[in-house]
Amino acid sequence: MGPLYPQELLNPEYNLLIGFLIGIGFGFLLEAAGFTNTRKLAGVFYGYDATVIKVFFTAAMTALIGLFILHNMGIIDVTLTFYPKTFWIPTLIGGAIMGLGFIIGGFCPGTSLSAAASGKIDAWVFISGVFIGILGFIFTYDFIWEGLRKAGKMGKIDIAQWIGIKEGLFIFLLTIITVISFIVFQKWQDSWTKKMDKSDLDDLGL
């Protein structure tokens, strides 16, 4: 049945409308979960707050397992969804930059927009930085970044295909890794929060 839009079962206007509604839900939940608080995101790196890791890992695993099962039930065709090609070198470098951005700025691109909407000045500054980065990249792409952008090409491939194991087995292994990481991060968080004052903890919403 799905996905609706690539099969033209949904016109572009409704597609945008649905995107808009999901966006509202996403922003609402980010704000409600306290993700627009920079200290919450930076907490992952300092070890006093594991919420972000848990939420994003859970979201990714829910999507992964859900799509895989729905695909097998014939409800959604995953091959019709957007699926980028892999370029491992620029991805590695970009990931490192993004991680640095998380810990320095305290936002990820999504939470910065939510935080800007709730009137946080640092979020507006962060977004300005994002746009400076985007424009800087665009205008220097042809003579600086093109080689890097295309380095380490692996084509359309996922990790299970790359290692050569069954996709279901990979999902299972990844889930185990996720659960272990939850437990480890929780332990780390507990060891930190024991040493912290109550006022600090309240400030973090823990």
């Binding site: 397992i65 859900g66 097998n72 999902i171 299972f172 185990i176 507990d190």
Partner: peptide, 27 residues
């Protein structure tokens, strides 16, 4: 400390992933 709700969510994920093992690859 792991809360009850977290435990429930994790259990569901693990259950789903165990089901996934027996499903076919995406071709």
């Amino acid at each position: 400390m792991m809360k009850r709700r977290e435990f429930l969510i994790i259990s569901l994920l693990v259950l789903g992933s165990i089901v996934s093992i027996f499903l076919n690859d995406i071709k």
